[in-house]
Design a protein around this nucleic acid. Structure first.
Length: 211
DNA sequence: AAGATTTGACCAAC
DNA sequence: GTTGGTCAAATCTT
């Protein structure tokens, strides 16, 4: 993974912060392993890219739709039209977790479809699906939740890979770094703060003064 | 008018 | 009974 991280050499404070982030990231990774319960089949990566902590997992079946589990997941997620919300809850579906300080457009077109308060969490979890779900059958979803850390971070969990074609590649913000086809993790590399300042901040938490 | 968001309801898993 | 993920009508934005 060759990430051209613009790490400021002359900033020991940032280094300390980075170490703290990495430590916490390792905790997240361990938790993820526990949740998934497949620690022996998962490779995990922990990286600090610019100001974004990336925790990527490579479960064997992330993209392997032929595995029984995946097939079952796909089947169970197909809603029965006449029964709202009729589906099987995903038990151990592969996922990719990204913890970041800044929320920037990841290059995909997402559409929010839900928001939920989660037990023991101060902040609600936001649910997004690919905008092309129905046009192209893309099953990619993501969940965004603000952590209770100080400073607060955003925990973005991606489920299923995009199968749609519209990647909006015109946006230079996303770099899909997948060194090999079998390496199912991918790195979302964000820009430095300096660059982000010039971009429009994309918040998943619109003002709640609508209603 | 069309597309996106909000939010209460629904339902399976636990 | 509780919780988390999704649906879909109502509402808002462009």
């Amino acid at each position: 993974m060759e990430s051209s991280s613009s790490w400021p050499e002359s900033s020991p404070i940032n280094r300390i912060k980075a170490i703290q982030e990495l430590t916490q990231g390792q905790i997240y990774t361990n938790r993820l392993h526990e949740m998934i319960g497949q620690s022996e089949t998962i490779e995990s990566k922990l990286e600090l890219v610019d100001h974004t902590l990336v925790i990527s997992t490579s479960p064997n079946n992330w993209d392997d739709q032929t595995s029984e589990d995946s097939i079952e997941s796909v089947k169970s997620m197909i809603p029965v039209k006449t029964r709202r919300g009729c589906y099987k809850r995903r038990k151990s579906c592969s996922e990719l977790v990204n913890v970041t300080f800044n929320l920037v457009d990841d290059g995909y077109a997402w559409r929010k479809y839900g928001q939920k308060m989660i037990l023991n969490s101060k902040h609600p979890r936001h649910y997004y699906r690919c905008s092309h779900k129905y046009e192209q059958g893309c099953l990619a979803t993501k969940q965004v939740q603000m952590t209770e850390d100080e400073p607060p971070k955003y925990r973005i969990t991606y489920h299923r890979r995009h199968t749609c074609r519209d990647l909006q590649i015109s946006s230079p913000q996303i770099i899909l770094d997948s060194p090999s086809p079998r390496d199912n993790s991918f790195l979302l590399s964000f820009e430095t703060n300096e660059l982000i300042k010039r971009k429009q901040f994309v918040s998943p938490f619109p003002s709640s003064t609508k209603r």
